[in-house]
């Protein structure tokens, strides 16, 4: 019997969907109980949101002023304080989980399994390496706590709404270090859907040529009700902020529809989209590797095709 603890990701107000994906992953382990740990400040509503996820047995809350921002050095000792009660500790493979979970694993003196994509058994998993060019099967020792991050694009979000798991305050005695201080978070406000969870995504690449030209990507995205993403090249060139990057070192996403515009399709980008339902590629280079993975390909000048597509879509509604 497995006892699984999932470390919730949230921004103080809203539970991140990545947490529900972790619950789905944990649910695939047979005969398991699933608790969610919410590290937060007093009075947050996040615990109630976590309690509403189907499959969650219990929500445990540690309230501490240190949890105003998710700083791994401060949060890891809190997770470790409860970890001993569990056979597994999971977190999402987002920048939050990637920062925190290895620190937890090291304090427990166990290896960490990154990016779990398939559950084979309670201690056996599949994960991608080499930007997804190989899939390995890994086995964790049966006598140790399994610490892992969950590749969220590989799992459907667990339902949220009907369940009401009990919420309990966990009293822990931990020393929270003061050597690390949160200063600021610079995030661009956007009314568009969130890139990580959107059902539709339109991404632009280097071929857009400038931040101004990227406007046609935003317009097409709006016509589709889609989130906006970008290749690394477009982010490096400064056309869009870093949080829009899709790929091995950016976000790994699984929308129902992914439209890649002016993106050549480096393997590092493709690994971020290989779980998408339908991939559409628009590129003027017919040899571009993106066409090898595209379900629908169009060889065209993006500066003509994209406005034309946007117009065609807008006139339909």
């Amino acid at each position: 019997m497995s006892k699984i603890l999932i470390v919730a990701e949230h921004d103080g107000r809203q539970l991140n969907t990545a947490t529900t994906k972790c619950v789905s992953c944990a649910s695939e382990i047979a005969d398991a109980t699933i608790d969610v740990l919410v590290l937060t400040t007093a009075g947050s509503e996040v615990a109630a949101q976590a309690a509403a996820i189907s499959g969650v047995g219990r929500v445990r809350v540690i309230e501490d002023p240190a949890n105003e921002h998710a700083v791994a050095a401060m949060q890891a000792p809190q997770v470790v304080a409860l970890a001993g009660e569990y056979s597994h500790v999971f977190g999402p493979s987002t920048t939050f989980g990637k920062d925190l979970m290895p620190r937890v694993a090291a304090l427990l003196d166990v290896d960490q399994i990154s990016d779990v994509m398939t559950v084979i058994g309670s201690h056996e998993f599949e994960r991608p390496i080499y930007a997804g060019n190989a899939i390995v099967t890994v086995t964790a020792p049966a006598d140790q706590i399994v610490v892992a991050t969950v590749r969220t694009a590989s799992f459907q979000a667990a339902e949220q709404g009907n369940a009401v798991a009990p919420v309990e305050n966990a009293e822990v005695e931990v020393e929270i270090p003061d050597h690390t201080r949160f200063v600021a978070l610079h995030a661009e406000a956007s009314d568009r859907p969130d890139l990580q969870t959107a059902a539709r995504v339109v991404s632009g690449g280097r071929a857009l040529g400038s931040a101004e030209n990227f406007e046609i990507i935003y317009k097409l995205a709006d016509a589709l009700g889609a989130a906006v993403g970008a290749s690394r090249a477009a982010v490096d060139a400064g056309y869009v902020p870093n949080e829009l990057q899709v790929g091995q070192t950016g976000k790994i996403i699984a929308p129902a529809l992914y439209v890649a515009v002016g993106i050549s399709g480096a393997i590092q980008h493709l690994t971020g989209i290989k779980d998408a339902g339908t991939i559409v590629a628009i590129n003027k280079d017919e040899e571009a590797p993106i066409f090898e993975v595209a379900d629908i390909g169009l060889v065209a000048d993006l500066f003509q095709a994209v406005p034309e597509l946007e117009k065609a879509l807008s006139s339909r509604t």
Binding site: D11, V71, T94, T95, F96, H179, T180, R181, F182, V183, A184, L185, H186, A187, E188, Q196, P241, N242, E243, K251
Partner: peptide, 13 residues
């Protein structure tokens, strides 16, 4: 730091 939400600034000893 490049994080999912944007750019985070930390001050560390």
């Amino acid at each position: 730091r490049e994080v999912d939400a944007g750019l985070e600034v930390l001050d560390v000893d």
